[in-house]
Amino acid sequence: MSRFFIWFALVASLVISPFIGSVTLQLADIFDLSTLHSQIFFELRLPRVMFAFIAGAILSVSGLLFQTLFRNALLTPYTLGVSSGAVLGAGIAIKLGLGALFFGISAINIFGFFGAILTLLLLLYLSKFIKNVKSESLLLLGIALSLFYASALMIIFYLGSAIQNDTLIRFTMGSLSIIGWQNPLFIGLVAFVLVLVVYLYRFELQLLATSEESAKLKGLDSKKVTYMLLLISSFAVGSLVSISGPIGFVGLITPHIVSMLYPSSINSRVLKTALFGALFLVFCDTIARLLSTQNDLPIGIVTALIGGPFFIYLIIRKKE
């Protein structure tokens, strides 16, 4: 029953989301393509809802992937500093005042993307020097990296002009405001590849959730598959975060919520996690726009405000 209610609320938010905002749209208005309302609907609202949907899928599948591959419930691209790496990369591009670089793709996106990928490679490289790699030490490594990045970002703030800093601050808050269909289509393609690969590798993932050794004993090239999945996921998160800025909490909590709604082995939770995460972010974005119709409330704040208490509630209920 509660499962049905949760899905119903999420799907309902998907349906009403494009109509909510500083201008409230009526269904009748939007089909008259000459009106401003129609333009708002098709060029702003729909792309934004699509973008939120796709971003949610990427963040939650990546969260599930990181948690499983590192066998630790707290490890996600966000907590490991991969998102912070993207922010720093984007910050550098903003500070350097770089415009469009390749084929009309902005330098901010490219730098953000490489920030994420390089952070993952750095993490994997550094983890070789930790004796008996425990996932806890990896988490500490991620926290250390995030703090280091935060300081580096401070330097950029310190040196930056007012205009650069304003752009940067808005970027670090995480935003789903986009115009037009270019970003949702690009990110949609990335998300499709990510979800497809993780789905195809769902049994490998199930095996890796025992232990790396046990997976190797049963015939899997554990290291190769782990690195491949981490790389694809960082590629996706890097691409997303370079456009949206960091959006925390979604990747951390949605895999847990789905596992509580559907207590089953990991292989059967991949697609459910993707769908739930997608709808969850649309839901959060709808709330954000209901709360402040004049200015955009940064989505990262809303996900944490909704996600945090919900997570605590789930933990307490589980204890009982």
């Binding site: 066998r71 199930q206 959730a209 025992t210 089953s264 990991i266």
Partner: peptide, 18 residues
């Protein structure tokens, strides 16, 4: 050693067929 707290005995034994 196990991270997946929901895997059943049957699913686990089946992993031997990987």
């Amino acid at each position: 050693e196990l991270y997946d707290s929901f895997i059943t005995l049957y699913e686990f034994v089946l992993l031997g067929r990987f």
